[in-house]
Structure formats: structure tokens, C-alpha cells
Design a binder for these strands. Structure first.
Lengths: 334, 334
DNA sequence: GCGGATGTTTTTAACGTTCAAAATGTTCGT
DNA sequence: ACGAACATTTTGAACGTTAAAAACATCCGC
């Protein structure tokens, strides 16, 4: 483990000169720079991050609380984490994982990590309606950015990046419409989460805009499970005027619709168009493949990081990104 | 941000005494300890981890490379990460995520993170047949432990923790046998991965032990998808002697079997018993629920951490843990 | 060849902590 | 009341880096 001092001795310059060779190479005379670089290479020197952080009081680590809900599944978590890591690394930073109790009970953990200088700031995800973490972190002046809006905020929320769920639903509706569908249903969630309302609104507005019916076509599922999706689909299919298209709030619910249709001898796509949300690994693993709305993970991650690290000069700190419709067999024209 | 010096001034002791109050409280006279603790509390002091790490040269961070395979899904990744974080935190450590190219191409990244003192060591996962990372890290004397055996090693591998796939398959076979099944098939993967062979062997041996047939009952699927699982199941059901039980190598393949049975008007459980592997979120989200083999994530994680941190005095550094059969409707007696 | 501007390198002093050794205080047997 | 043994506290130095200022070198115009 070579240190600056050893490199300096080897290159016959002062310690500070070696430091400059790394952090401000333009200050060195070209020949000195080359000599120092040779020594660095030769001794295989790597700067000690702890010493650097102590001096500069910046650790270049970003905290992310790994979520754990017993019942809800997080099928795109690995995609998100990978994108987040990659984005952090483009600016020389890394992601530090930790666990914490939900909501405001977890805040002391955030505070502690920041106070002990284990992280510079945080990326939040799975923001809830009126998420208390925003206000708390803001009060403590701890840098953060959240993936997901704070729905129905009372206080001014902090910076966020989110995906436009309403636009996503509208895309799905439009796509089914273009495929000839004229009665498009919506599978939703039980409790009014901001996310569910957002996606529901997008469906309703686009249907109205296209002159399509909506009454009796929005079904709330009891939970995010294949069974509930299937049950809701059965309910729709058994009604007087069954739908010929189904936009689901999640891939899981869509998979339920997929199964119910198959069970009844109907083919998703050929008979009833089905779309899901999030383009989870499941979407490509069924047959016909499930048309779904892909969240632009790489873009989300890089926006999060650039807002958090203050790289995004002048850019707004509230960014609504557009999902992308990934078309597979389940929404083929009838 | 209070420092040791400020706390010391406030408590009217030396800096070292405050340090001792935190790291070796038995050295202080009870009344001094209490006075120092009061000052610590009052000033809301938190030790600066960078300064500590610089001095002790231990960062208490463990690196984990977040895997990314475009085609293969990692449905239990969030469970694993959560368990790993929680286990790390019980010893005051944290997980640092990073990305790296696969196999030996990624090793410079590991080396760099260690040399710059961003991490003390690594947890590997998804070890491959003859994984080159083991030997590489061992040569460089970088501490690590892997989740997953190194199959067919030529060199002496490093420490690992793994789940006994053979025992898992045997459990599943026995369970189906106890439910009255007498022709139990096995859905496997294409290329001979150590993991697949392990699970396959467990099925074959237990079948033989129970006097059950195995010939023609092991099918290799082209990839880990629902479609392939369904195709393989169709192949089995169409044969002269169709199976009455199916043990699948993964939940995804099992879901394929599940679907194929349903499509044919058969009920998983009532007609053909089906089991999966890993107890992914999918298992509980279909109906009837999929019987699956749960990996003891919490135990895996704590073994990994204790081996890595050297807490496991005397314990072997190769630990094979037993999966647990989670019984759901898909394997109900016929 | 001198003052000033600019370019390059070194010196000094931290950042906040812990280790090792030294200093001081306390207890106790005799 | 003395010193040995022990308990408690302080001092000095170090971990490896960078910021700021000082020192030194070079170049230019006049």
C-alpha cells in the first residue's frame, strides 16, 4: 500500500506535488507530471479514500435504504439498483445500502449515517402519500432526492424524479385504441395511493378524449396479486358489456388478466388486448408476451444522481420522465 | 457537527478520555464516564467514521457487486440484499454496492475498491462453475466470502456459504411422494451448471431411494422462462406415461408447469403436484399457490458476514445450509 | 537588470480520530 | 508513612490526505 509520501520520495518531489498531479495536473510542468505519473504507476499507488474524505469532508457515498415489504413485491428492484450504481459511478460515487424502519421511525438512522459521515446524502424511493421523510431531511439540511413524488404534500417537498404514470396509462389506452379496441377497462389498486390515482386518471382522460366509455370499467383489486387481477378480469368479462382491452396498474395484475383470459379459452392480444406496468421480468416470460410500460431506469438514475450531486445546474429539481411502451403479443390487434 | 475536542472541552477532560468513553468505557471512573456521556448526549456527538477509519484502517464496509444479466431474472435479489444489509448492520458494518464486468474482467474493480480503502472485503454471489474470482482475490489477499459454491474447482476455493440444492430436491420429491405421487418428473436447465446438476442429482437419488422411476422424466428446458417450463410440461404430459408430480429447478419453470396444467383443465395439486425453487414472490401470487423451497436468507446472510468478519471462530468456512419447503396448494394430495 | 506578472513547487497546518507511552491519582500492606 | 501495585487520565504522535500560503523560478516589457 503505497502512500503519497512514498510516491513523492520516489519521484523526488514534495507530497503536495503528487497530490496536485492527481487533482490538478495542469499545475505541474509537463515533465514533472510525467515523472510523477511514472512513479504512481510503478508503485501502483491508489489514494486512500478515508484520508481524502477526512480532509475534504465529502465521502462520495450515497445512502439508499433497501425497502422490505412483506407483502408487496419489488420486481424491478435489481434493475433500479443497477442503474443507480452505474449512475453513481459515473461521478466517482457509490451506493451504500442500509435498513431502516418505515416512514418517520426510520429517520434517526438517516440522521446517524449522515452525522457519522458515512454518506453525503440519500436517494429515497417508494415515497408514500405525504411522505414525512422529505420534511424531516429538509429540516436537518441533509441532502436527498426522491424517486417518486410526494403526493398531496402539505409542506414544500424536496427534489424528486418520477415517471409520468398518467401519460403511461394514456399511451397504453391509445395503443389499444389504435389496435381497434373500443371498450378499455382499468385494473386498479385498493387504497388510494397517489400512484394508483395518477395512472387511473391517465386512463380516464385518454378514454374520454377518444370518446370511449369509462363507467363500470375501472375495477379496484384487493391486493397486487395474480389472483386479484384474474378475479377482477372475470368480473369484467362476466358483465353485460365486457371490455375488449384491459390496462392494468401493474404487471402482476396484468398477469392475472392474462391468466383469466387463457383460462376462458381467450387469447390475450387476439381476443382482448392487455397491458401492464413497469416491464418487470415477468412481462417477457409469459406467452404471448405482456405489453408493458417500461420505466426509463437509466435516465431516472442519472437524473437522481445529478440532482443530488448538484451537477444539474439550472435544471429543475422536479423531473417527470416519460415511460416507454414495450409492445408484445398481449396487445396485438384483434 | 461536534467533535471529540468539543465534547472533551465541555466535559472538562482530555480528548482521549472521550474516545475511551466510547471505545473502552471500563477504563473510566464511573462518575467521569457519566459526565462524558452527558456531554456526548448534550452536544449530540457522533464519531466521524472517516477519521476513525483513517486511524484504524478499517472502513467497516463490505462490497457487493450488483449483478446484471440481461436475460436471467433475479427475483429474490431484494430479499437477499435486505438480509445481507441487516446482517452487516448487526456488526456495525454496511454494504457498498458497485458494478463490475463479469468474471475476471471485473477483478480490477474489486482490487481498486480495496486498494482505495472503500471496502474491507467482498461478498460474491452467483458464483459460476470454476469461478475465477476466488483464486484472484485469494492471490491478492483480499478478504471475501461467496454465496454459492465454486463448482468443479481446480484450485482451492475461498470460503463460501451455499444452500443444499440436492437436499432441496429430495425434500420436494419426498413431499410429493407423501402426497401419493409415484411418477415424479424434473424440469431442469440447459447448460450444465453446477447448481442445476446439484438439484437434479437430489431428485434422481431420492427417486431411486423411494423406488420411483426416473428414466424419461428429466427434461432440460432451453431457458428459464414460463414458456419453456410449459413446453417441457406439455412434452411430459403427452408422453406414454405422464408424470403425476413435477419438481422444477426454478419458480419460473414451475410457473410454466402450473400454466400448462391449468390450460389443459388440470389443477396443480389436485391432479399433478408441482414444486418450484427459491420461494420467489411469484410463488404466493398464483392460485393455487406454488409449493417452493425457501432459501434461508437471514441465515445465509449472517453466515456470510460472520465468516467475512472473522466472527465465526472455529466454525468451518464452508457452510451448506438446508432449504425449507414452503407448502402451498400446488402440491396438495391428489 | 529591475518590477511585475505568471508559472511551478514546497511548506505549514490542518481534518478527527486512536495508539502507545507517560503522568498522575488511589489503594493497600506493612 | 512509604512504596508497590493498580486505576485513571493526559500527552504526543501518527494515520494519509488537501487547502492555503509562501517560496522559488521564469518570462516579459522597458
Amino acid at each position: 500500500m503505497a502512500t503519497l509520501k512514498q510516491v513523492a520520495a520516489h519521484a523526488e518531489v514534495s507530497v503536495q506535488t503528487v497530490s496536485n498531479a492527481l487533482n490538478a495536473p495542469h499545475r505541474l510542468r509537463p515533465d514533472t507530471l510525467e515523472r510523477v505519473n511514472r512513479s504512481i504507476e510503478l508503485l501502483n499507488y491508489r489514494p486512500n479514500r478515508n484520508a481524502r474524505s477526512l480532509r475534504t469532508s465529502a465521502v462520495e457515498l450515497i445512502g439508499y435504504c433497501v425497502p422490505s415489504w412483506p407483502n408487496q413485491t419489488h420486481l424491478v428492484m435489481d434493475q433500479f439498483l443497477h442503474a443507480l450504481c452505474a449512475a453513481a459511478e459515473t461521478s466517482g460515487r457509490h451506493i451504500l445500502l442500509f435498513t431502516a424502519p418505515a416512514a418517520v421511525q426510520g429517520m434517526p438512522v438517516y440522521d446517524d449515517l449522515h452525522a457519522r459521515r458515512l454518506v453525503d446524502g440519500f436517494v429515497l424511493s417508494q415515497t408514500e402519500t405525504h411522505d414525512p421523510r422529505h420534511g424531516w431531511l429538509k429540516d436537518k439540511q441533509i441532502p436527498f432526492v426522491s424517486f417518486g413524488r410526494v403526493w398531496k404534500q402539505t409542506t414544500q417537498p424536496g427534489p424528486w424524479v418520477d415517471v409520468d404514470g398518467a401519460a403511461g396509462s394514456a399511451l397504453a389506452v391509445q395503443h389499444l385504441y389504435d389496435a381497434g379496441r373500443r371498450r378499455i377497462a382499468f385494473l386498479s389498486w385498493p387504497k388510494t395511493s397517489g400512484l394508483a390515482e395518477d395512472r387511473l386518471t391517465g386512463w380516464r382522460n385518454r378514454c374520454k378524449k377518444l370518446g370511449l366509455p369509462t363507467t363500470g370499467l375501472a375495477v379496484r383489486c384487493g391486493e397486487d396479486s395474480i389472483d386479484e387481477g384474474a378475479r377482477a378480469t372475470a368480473e369484467l368479462l362476466d358483465s353485460d358489456q365486457p371490455p375488449d382491452g384491459i390496462v392494468a396498474l401493474s404487471d402482476i395484475l396484468a398477469l392475472g388478466a392474462h391468466r383469466e383470459l387463457s383460462d376462458r379459452g381467450l387469447t390475450p392480444g387476439a381476443d382482448v388486448g392487455v397491458t401492464g406496468f413497469d416491464d418487470s421480468p415477468l412481462a417477457s416470460v409469459v406467452s404471448p408476451g405482456l405489453t408493458s410500460l417500461r420505466q426509463p431506469m437509466d435516465q431516472i438514475a442519472s437524473e437522481l444522481i445529478s440532482i443530488l450531486t448538484g451537477t444539474s445546474n439550472g435544471m429543475p429539481t422536479e423531473r417527470l420522465l416519460q415511460p416507454e411502451l414495450v409492445i408484445r403479443g398481449s396487445s396485438a390487434p384483434g
